[in-house]
Design a binder for these strands. Sequence first.
DNA 1: CTACTGTTAGTACCTAGTCCTAATATCGGA
DNA 2: TCCGATATTAGGACTAGGTACTAACAGTAG
Lengths: 194, 194
Amino acid sequence: MKRTKKERQQLLQETIGENPFVTDEDLAEQFGVSVQTIRLDRMELSIPELRERIKHVAKSRLTDEVRSLPIEEVIGDVIDIELDSSAISIFDVRKEHVFVRNGIARGHHLFAQANSLAVAVINDELALTERATIRFTRPVREGERVVAKAKVTEVNAKKERTKVEVKSYVEKELVFRGDFIMYRSNIRAEGEAE
Amino acid sequence: MKRTKKERQQLLQETIGENPFVTDEDLAEQFGVSVQTIRLDRMELSIPELRERIKHVAKSRLTDEVRSLPIEEVIGDVIDIELDSSAISIFDVRKEHVFVRNGIARGHHLFAQANSLAVAVINDELALTERATIRFTRPVREGERVVAKAKVTEVNAKKERTKVEVKSYVEKELVFRGDFIMYRSNIRAEGEAE
DNA sequence: CTACTGTTAGTACCTAGTCCTAATATCGGA
DNA sequence: TCCGATATTAGGACTAGGTACTAACAGTAG
């Protein structure tokens, strides 16, 4: 017996996790045990059969119309935020963000990062972009990490407008700049101190 | 016979297109024909069996890490384009495009539609957004159809810059406007007439 | 030695098909 | 009305990739 039951089951779980399309027979061969053993293992680990696994993946893909834009509420990871003052987020450019032809990041991803950061920094129930002037100062490529820094430059509660300046950098080098004029509902977000 | 063969096959194709998880038996019941008839129909239309369909969906989902943005090259559907002159695309705002809290479309989607249209309209090997001024004139909501119209306002080959003006409408009402200054490589795209 | 765990083997059954043959049904045209 | 073509249905044999269950056996611990 090369591996103990535990080791085998551990590996089994990982293997199926990586490739849900593998059959019990494949696995039996791979681990040098019988098909029945694999089935018992799956039982114990409550891993469903191949077809159910595939169905699950397929369904999650179709339900993904909801998730569709991998962009969730804020594009990039917010690493620091001070409401109505400043915020920072990072965004790693991967192959799905670039033009196939030249590997340059598509502008709307940089915009999305900056824009969502501008929305996030505003301490209000509702914040909408009303106007923006943006500049792409250097093409960004696959694999680069973009750090966006937002700064609130003007809060005018009466006018229901806030100006936010966002500068995005790759290694200290400015790659994007956006000046956003945000509309805000002027109603403090819940649970906020005066 | 309620429907002709052609009608049934047409419907069959649509039905499976909408829901790949439907079995031959389900379909047979739905159309009031035998399972065998459904199978013959699938043969003629070369639609694979249920499990293959599911597998295909599942695989495309896993491979999707690559395609990730369902948005392919252009966001929205281009319905008309005249290179270096004008282009029109439509974009249907669905629930994945809006803020959960208020149902208003997230700005970057409108920007993405406009920006990618500005890129598409340029008849060049390489086109990148260099600068843009944008205005969101009215919030767009779930269910609305946004029609973006791009117009090339200035082509200056020497300077390698092109100005594109994009106006997006919902039912004749302006909801977004963007003025893009695009960088271009100044090398004609392949297969283009002088 | 016995009890227990782990592993293997084999059977019957299931779903959602394939492929193939054969029998009907339906319809248009001479 | 009969002929032939197309359309539909039925059935049998087979497949993959299982489930559920029973039975047998090996190795180890008490």
